[in-house]
Design a protein around this nucleic acid. Sequence first.
DNA 1: TATCCCTACGATGTCG
DNA 2: CGACATCGTAGG
Length: 785
Amino acid sequence: MPTEINFYPSDASVTSEGVFVFGYTQDKKKIAVFDAKYFPWLALAQENVDGLRQICNKLGVEFKHTQNEGNLTKVFFNIKDFDKVAREARQLNLYNSDISLRKRWWIDRKILPFTLTKAIGEPLSRANLKVDMVLGADFLDSLNTSLDTIDIVGFDFETSSSGAFPDPELNAIISIALYSNNFRRVITWKRFAPHEPHVTFVDSEAELIEEFVRSVNELKPHILAGYGSDNFDMPYLIRRAKKYDIELELNWDKSELSLKRSGHRTARVVGISYCDVSHFIRRILALDTDHYSLDLVAKKMLGKGKLAGFNAKRINEIWSVGLPEELALLCDYNLIDAQLAQELAKKILPVQMELCKLTGQPLHDVNLMTYGTLVEWFVIKNADIFIPPRPKEMEVAERQRHSYEGGLVVEPIPGLYKDICAFDFRSLYPSIIASHNISPETMDCSCCGVRGGFAIKEESIWFCSKKQGFVPKLVGDLVERRKRINDILAATSPSDASFSELMARQHALKFIAAAFYGYLGFGASRFYSFDCAKAVTSLGRKYIQMVLKEANKLGFKILYGDTDSLFVVMKNDTDAEAKSFLQIINSILPAPMELEFKAKYRSGIFLGKKSGEGGAKKRYALLTQGNSLILRGLEAIRGDWSNLAKRTQKEILQILLAEQDAEKGLAHFRKITNNVKTQKTELEDLAIRIKLTRPLQSYATNAPHVVAAKLAKAKGHPVRRGFLVSYVRTKGPDKVRLLEDCKKEDYDADYYIEHQLLRAVYKIFEIFGYGLEKLKAGQTTLEGY
DNA sequence: TATCCCTACGATGTCG
DNA sequence: CGACATCGTAGG
């Protein structure tokens, strides 16, 4: 008797016999659905099918069946044969041949993660699966209902340590915390009294590990979320478990928990969605921060951080001394970390879920994606085309040698301006792609010719005006859907239950639409098209130039423009003027291109270049109607300047722009320089932080941050790519000292005054008529500077 | 197996 | 000293 079961799939695993799909049923039983009838296919030109047959004969592989589509033939195979054939027949110009089957299964089967799916088939017995039920499916179908409550369990480990960093060979895991909406537990193996009920004592590290695994399995989360856990907790767990010969039974199949390499070392828990959310936060959300520690990221995203005052040394002390109240505090610390991981995962979940739907990929995979992969999977899932293979390394290198012209930037005239109006294009590049049908296969089509298609004179190419390409179709869709959502959002109160959901959806659509253009010009792209990428920016320049010209015609004073935006002072400064400007422009623009009014500012300054003549591009400050500052490109928003200079620059701008009191600004500036001069400034304010973008030995320069990085390495810090060097400029021949080794009396006051403070403000004061001499003049009167 | 593009500024060190 | 190369980080 066939059984019918509805379930929410979360993960798939490919074996040579078929695909296991894992998930929970509606009453939260663990289920594995076995799809033995999945036959992956590849496509090739019909004239190459015989060649493929010969190769298959040699390999002893049979075609499952074939199917003609246009000029191409799809050939289906058994899973176990697929990779072998695809590899051996590479020279036959194959399509859809190098896409991971585990990921592709979802797309071929049209099943979405966390979406109710009907499975019909016979129950199977499979002792090696850790699930409540196994079904051999003859039929699978998506019922298109999303799972509405997703259970997220956050987790975090604490370990002892002998040095600055825990060593998994030497140092034990001392406690593990788990946190979800309705559950919290800290497991530890040193007893103390009194203790809170959520603290569970065990007798050894081995029992701790086993209890953790048991807890996860009993909690049955959809998502197991860590922060930085691919780098720390998971590898640590695996090493410590091995030491005690413990089998980590987290996976729903018989396999042991292991680390995979998918660009990045990551753990995958078979069955549920394990996510180290730091990947997504770093790669997709790309917070404006110079490092991605849990504390900093949580403060930015959740408005709260870790429990203060802990580090590896302190944790180690607490553990070895063993005072009850201290151990209790350590448990709190551990639990808060797990809670932060859980809340971060919860926060990004709506966007991730939307991306799961757009790419057809499970959460674990979406969490690891970059912009490139996001676009790639979006195309694989949604485009009605055959997928070409990834380019080979040589090809990628060759592509990377060419580059093309980008956006237009208007040089500003340095000065202070009042009543500034800002306009910008809504999604410029996506809307250009959609309106001009820019796609690799619509370029230079024979059906149109130069006169019939969308011509780009400057590049001597054209795009078909008869048949829509796959890129414009997908991008146009994204732009349109996003606009629809934004329209609804505009009429929705932020307190409305649907608001954050809609917000997440429009964000997800934006991420993909915005990355499409870059993906066309990306060397490792499957859909690389130098000419398409070039055409997009070329049209972008054409349209912004058209807008600048029209603004000029209307008598607007053009202050600045960058790629898709312009800042002007209008003639009469009325709403009607702005409105008619937009009307003129938008009647010229082809849909869905659109110029929008962005904001009006009370005032703003555009700075002169520090070296050479003229105005500096990408460096300005604006004052909103509410008297708050918007800064672009300035030192105050750069990560590689001292807090002292950054703060001072902001304060000076606030005084000069909002309070319009240059004398007060000058007095304030002098006060700060004097403080620096008398060695009174805190080192934390003087530290300069710079991130290494490459391995230390590959530097061809002795720049201060490289010198400092070498000092850090000598002290045993893990100086790798991405390492954040914190140093202070000092007097004496070495010039540089690590922040941690510096004393207040050692800092080089002259450097901080000349190269940090003055350099951060002199171009601003200049606009207000205060030259460099005047800024320095005040200093000479004080204690013989 | 890593996986988005170009434009721009400015700091610093080195060389002639 | 200026020209230039190297490097990091920003804007869009």
